[in-house]
Design a protein around this nucleic acid. Structure first.
Lengths: 326, 326
DNA sequence: CTGAAAGCGCTTACAG
DNA sequence: CTGAAAGCGCTTACAG
């Protein structure tokens, strides 16, 4: 190792490079090594270091829906909380799919410093069995597997039901996401329950599912609308805003007036929901905070600190826009 | 190594695990080792392997604007082309910023198998000096640094200028992105040139820049519009659709009728541009193909194959929607 | 076709 | 406070 040309052993260089000099290296040598490191532009080799330490500086983020713009904000939050000493590795798979067991093994063989898993299902966590620190995001009902940062989507869903009931709707439909992640199940269940309690009827044949994609959602809505219209449906709630954009788009094509003939609402409150015309009423989810909190929790774990038990739950809130009120 | 319990040496196991058995391991032993690997669920340790080989299985993707939904598609394409044997590491930084030299060093110390750099500037490439295979995406004018996959944004920009000229516009404005990436410079230059050639005037004080963010773009437009209106501006072209959404949003607030009073257009053709009301006229950029082609090129490079010289340029095309035609 | 051995670049007890 | 040495889990000439 060239940096040993500071006139010391590699052990001393390692100590200095890792900031473990407290009472173990003379000030004189610390300075000498620092100079040498600066002059030579030396950077500790990540691979060698990882092998010796048994753990790398990589944090793996596993998420089933990377293409959702919601996710870009989550990543932003994570990055901010993690800081520059950890490298974010994105485990990208087919839209809506979780990595296979074999993918996970390969990933784990990188000896990650920590794992962040977004919107997982129990099966995946079951065969993950991570030896690394692990934090879950948006994983309602799975807190027993690992520390979690959750969104109180149920509260937002209920607010949405109440809002629609107050506007006089009595027949509604629901466009769900096909991915079997729990957050979507919670969104739907909470909405349906509160809707029923407030006199809004959503019969099972008025619940359809599509992938999180504007075009697919539009097509599905196009196919379902005639029947719904006959049944007197005046409101459609979508599992994500992306689904909502599809409905909005198809409604325009079909000449359905929003919100007069049909009210539309979604979840996520993506930036574009404020921009569409009419704006899309949506349950706001604090994406950046979600990533940030999860990053913070994981960081504490990786640094060997303790976490306050009980996990973190972030509030959601209804943002009312033109798609549900004139 | 437990897998050595197949009754062979670790060397033999390594050969089998890496598929380098051709004429070097007896069929008998290959089978025995395969069984042992399967039974024990053995996976080659990525770190140990990387250290011995001198290179990891990690492909680093450096991009200045990860939160742009455009980017999700690029990632999708890259993942598809790379396949499961490479792990995608995302280098995430402040929006619009490139990693510092120190970040890059840290990243390179992971010994990446390859590097993908999106929308770089010359300075960054200058001090990158990557020893790993490198492919650039969306890097007009930087082909001398590395093999590149480019988008012919100039062609789309000219089509847009022609479209606006044909609609009779003679006074226009331009909302640019502040990031100094070349693609934005090319978009603007090509548009301005063709606009001038077709009798559309865009004086320098009618060119403003903001970050790629709906809210910021909206505010900037709000500040500039009164002046522009006085000058007779009837069309605004935006460097990205995201800027366009901001303009659309503010225009609605300000009661400016689109497209009657003001035509608006952007670049990227994000999914939401088809959904907004009116739909946003936009220069379509083939994001998935961009990622795919770049992934393919890099893969060839990493496998030691040759690339056809000259790089790849992907076509762009104008998608006309309601924001520029009634 | 096979295995013993060196080496990849670090870190960390350990002895001094 | 310091350095020699072992070891992290692999791969790859090399000798047989």
């Amino acid at each position: 190792m060239v940096a040993a040309r500071a006139g010391v052993s590699t052990a001393t260089v390692s100590l200095v490079a890792n900031g473990k000099t407290a009472g173990r290296v003379s000030e004189d040598n610390v300075a000498r090594v620092r100079d040498a490191i600066a002059e030579l532009g030396y950077v500790v080799d990540g691979i060698g270091s990882s092998l010796a330490k048994g753990v790398s500086s990589i944090v793996i983020l596993v998420a089933p829906d990377i293409s959702n713009p919601f996710f870009a904000k989550v990543i932003d939050g994570v990055r901010e909380a993690l800081g520059p000493q950890y490298q974010l590795l994105l485990s990208v798979t087919e839209a809506g799919e979780f990595p296979q067991a074999s993918d996970v093994r390969r990933l784990m063989s990188l000896r990650p410093a920590g794992l962040l898993v977004d919107a997982p299902n129990a099966d995946f966590l079951e065969d993950l069995a991570s030896p690394s620190p692990l934090v879950l995001l948006d994983a309602p009902g799975l807190e027993s597997y690992a520390p979690s940062v959750n969104l109180d989507v149920a509260s937002g869903a209920r607010q949405l039901a109440a809002h629609l009931a107050a506007a006089g709707h009595t027949e509604a439909a629901y466009v769900d996401s096909v991915t079997g992640t729990d957050t979507f199940a919670v969104r739907r269940a909470a909405f349906l329950e509160e809707a029923a309690a407030r006199g809004i009827s959503v019969s099972p044949d008025r619940i359809i599912s599509t992938t999180i994609d504007v075009g697919t959602a539009a097509a599905a809505f196009a196919a379902a609308w005639p029947e719904w219209q006959r049944a007197g449906v005046t409101a459609v709630v979508c599992g994500t805003d992306t689904h909502g954009y599809g409905v909005l788009q198809e409604a325009r094509v079909a000449g359905v007036r929003i919100p007069e003939e049909l009210a539309v609402a979604g979840f996520d409150d993506l930036p574009y929901s404020a921009t569409s015309n009419p704006g899309l009423t949506s349950v706001h989810l604090p994406a950046t905070s979600l990533g940030q909190k999860a990053g913070e929790q994981l960081r504490r774990l990786m640094e060997g600190k303790f976490l306050k038990p009980g996990g973190v739950t972030l509030e959601t809130s209804l943002v009312v826009r033109g798609s549900t009120t004139a």
